[in-house]
Design a protein around this nucleic acid. Structure first.
Length: 644
RNA sequence: GCUAGUGUAGCUCAACGGUAGAGCAGCGGUUUUGUAAACCGCAGGUUAGGGGUUCGAUUCCCCUCACUAGCUCCA
């Protein structure tokens, strides 16, 4: 019997029933056959050796596509598991999926795998690859599969099988290793690309800390050795940019054991960057109709009981302080205080919207293992604001925040994506479905009114609010863990009875929007240090220009130039150390000062400075005034580096 | 918090049972220098902290503290 196979280009191939995708690929071309890893038949991913029994649409998936790479990485995970099974006794296998940039596999085994063992495992994987062992699919009734795994002592697999609803499950056999797996896989182990095992770490079975902790080995794999090397280079680049390393090298911030974990000490050079950002933020917010407020860092427990923070987040809050026999808490949030300011007067609909903004420092208990440089700390400053408005004003207000968000992220040269995060499964009950719905729709409308592409992140909202989450990604294309957020609070207006007097002279429940754009100043600083690789744009650089006199004879001239720059508000210095210019250049470069101004006898004579910029290197002499004009312009416009 | 790993001078690293060492940075001197490291010298350490084993511990063992990776990405 013949079947018709429709290819992606629309052409139709007649084949005998039982032909495989591999044969089709071979018929189309040797190159395709070589790069093929799997096939898509009528929208289902299948192995290349699956016999085709009826008319179908078929496309060959090659290693150079994202899907093909994914499949190969998944196969790599199997091969790694196979290698571990050969090298260790008593291994129980967890799961082993492909992930962004690689794969992992979780193992339960009696002995601890160390980083040194990875090489051994890699070698074993290479051996398996050279065996060109086929990935053979086998389908078994669920019962029988479960029995088989039980016999092999694979309790995790048994657990997985028992949760599968289908009556038949599939297995893959590779070089003596059998694994429960949906597939598809590469045809044989010789088709593995270039791979490298990266690290080993603990991981709870099914991500639940109540379960056993398994050993997870992470690896990365690419179609070619070049691509693998390129990826390793990217990892090294990321390591070079690590904000913790740069924070030390550039003398921006530190942590101190005696001060406490997760508590940042901002050094002068880091503090100035933060202050410049804060000044920019404050000016921008006033321009946008926000009113600055200041509120205390501790407050009576009463307010956090009423707000619901204690019932919900107590394990993230610090223990009470007893003051005059009353329990106080270090603040984990700024909202209650802003609400209290709002409530000091009767608010009319005519007063709304009211926008209170504060760079509010809050303290939260983060699990010790979660702390990470500036990205996860226990004391941090939120660029927090609360917008009090009428239901009719929500869309406008959210649009305003979106606009502000785009402006701010743009200034830092960040790209971003929008997510509409909807009601989570466990969520506030005191708000009706209709209220959730309305709030979510308002956010959606705002996104659409501004024509912003967004994805819906189902169930990712806060328990008290649907929200718009903005995920920035940096110059290395890495997504930030957290970014700007806009939330419609369905909780606090009720709990604090926040109202305004409407046109009808009656009291109405107020809408409260929470929003943070930089999020935590600490995290934001950490992220942009990495984004800029420590080379801050001139307006942010702790030291914007450094004058390097060649000999002491130029010192007076250098001082004069310095006064000129400082007079314009430029952060500059003179390197008057008894060193060679080369030394001073090196030192200025390592401290990532964007402009180095060399002054020797020639410059003094002509009233110039020789500019050496980070961007262009030696640019030659320009008149002092011309340089002052240039740098002040760059500062004023917040110019970004040409290349990030 | 859990699993694994790491902790030696300000920084980057040696020494791995036998008196703790180098480079850079710092300080003092010489040199007055033209686009990424001049030369000479000096100083810098309860080897994270505590306990143990040992004739002797940075090294081996235990505890504490801190740091690092991971613990979400659905066989």
């Amino acid at each position: 019997m013949n079947i018709s196979i429709t290819l992606p280009d629309g052409s139709v191939l007649k084949k005998q029933a039982g032909a495989t995708p591999a044969e089709v690929a071979a018929q189309i071309g040797a190159g395709l056959a070589r790069d093929a890893v799997a096939a898509r038949v009528d929208d289902v991913l299948v192995d290349l050796n699956l016999p085709l029994e009826q008319d179908c649409e078929l496309s060959i998936i090659t290693i150079d596509t994202p899907e093909g790479l994914q499949i190969m990485r998944h196969s790599a995970a199997h091969v790694m598991a196979c290698a571990v099974g050969r090298l260790y006794e008593g291994v129980k296998f967890g799961i082993g999926p492909a992930i962004t940039d690689g794969f992992y596999y979780d193992f339960d085994l009696p002995e601890a795998i160390s980083a040194d063992d990875l090489e051994r495992i890699e070698d074993e994987m290479a051996r398996i690859a050279s065996e060109e062992a086929p990935f053979a699919r086998e389908e078994l009734p669920t019962e029988q599969a479960s029995e088989l795994m039980r016999e092999n002592g694979q309790s995790y697999k048994v657990e997985l099988i028992e949760e599968i609803e289908e009556r038949v499950v599939s297995f893959y056999h590779t070089a003596g290793f059998v694994d429960l797996c949906r597939g598809p896989h590469i045809p044989h182990t010789g088709k593995l690309g270039a791979l490298k095992l990266l690290s080993v770490a603990g991981a709870y079975w099914r991500g639940d800390e109540k379960n056993a902790q398994l050993q997870r080995i992470y690896g990365t794999a690419f179609a070619t050795e070049d691509q693998l090397q390129e990826h390793i280079r990217r990892l090294e680049e990321a390591e070079k940019r690590d904000h913790r390393k740069l924070g030390r090298e550039l003398d921006l911030f530190s942590f101190d054991e005696e001060i406490g974990r997760g508590l940042v000490l901002w050094h002068p050079r880091g503090a100035i960057v933060r202050e410049v950002i804060e000044d920019y933020w404050k000016k921008l917010h006033r321009k946008r109709g926000y009113e600055p407020v200041f509120t205390p860092h501790i407050a009576s427990e009463k307010v956090y009981l009423r707000s619901g923070h204690i019932p919900k987040y107590e394990d993230m809050m610090y223990a009470p302080l007893l003051i005059d026999e009353e329990a106080y808490r270090v603040r984990p949030m700024n909202c209650p205080a802003h609400i209290k300011i709002f409530q000091t007067g009767i608010r009319s609909y005519r007063d709304l919207p009211i926008r209170y903004a504060e760079l509010g420092t809050v303290y939260r208990y983060e699990m010790s293992g979660a702390l990470r440089g500036l990205l996860r700390v226990r004391g941090f400053t939120q660029d927090d604001a609360h917008i009090f408005c009428t239901p009719g004003q929500i869309v406008d207000e959210v649009e305003g925040v979106l606009d502000l968000t785009e402006e701010i992220l743009g200034v830092f040269g960040l790209n971003y994506k929008f997510y509409l995060s909807t009601r989570p499964e466990v969520s506030l009950e005191s708000a009706s479905d209709e209220e959730w719905q309305r709030a979510t729709e308002a956010l959606r409308q705002a996104l659409e009114a501004r024509d912003l592409p967004y994805e819906v992140d189902e169930g990712a909202g806060a328990f008290y609010a649907p929200k718009i989450d903005v995920v920035p990604f940096d110059s290395l294309g890495r997504e930030w863990e957290q970014g700007p957020t806009i939330q419609v609070d369905l909780n606090l207006p009720k709990r604090f009875d926040v109202t305004y007097v409407g046109e009808d002279g009656k009291e109405h429940e107020c809408i409260i929007l929470h929003r943070a754009i930089l999020g935590s100043l600490e995290r934001f600083m950490g992220e942009i240090i990495e984004h800029f690789a420590g080379w801050f744009p001139v307006w942010l650089a702790p030291e914007q220009a450094r004058i390097l006199p060649i000999t002491d004879d130029q010192l007076p001239y250098a001082q004069e130039a310095l006064r000129r720059l400082e007079g314009e508000g430029v952060r500059a210095s003179v390197d008057d150390r008894n060193e060679t210019v080369s030394y001073k250049i090196r030192s200025g470069t390592m401290q990532k000062v964007p402009y180095l101004l060399i002054v020797g006898a020639r410059e003094v004579e002509r009233g110039t400075v020789s500019v050496r910029s980070h961007e262009n290197g030696d640019e030659g002499p320009v008149e002092v005034e011309a340089f002052v004009a240039r740098i002040t312009e760059e500062i004023k416009t917040k110019a970004l580096p040409a290349e990030l």
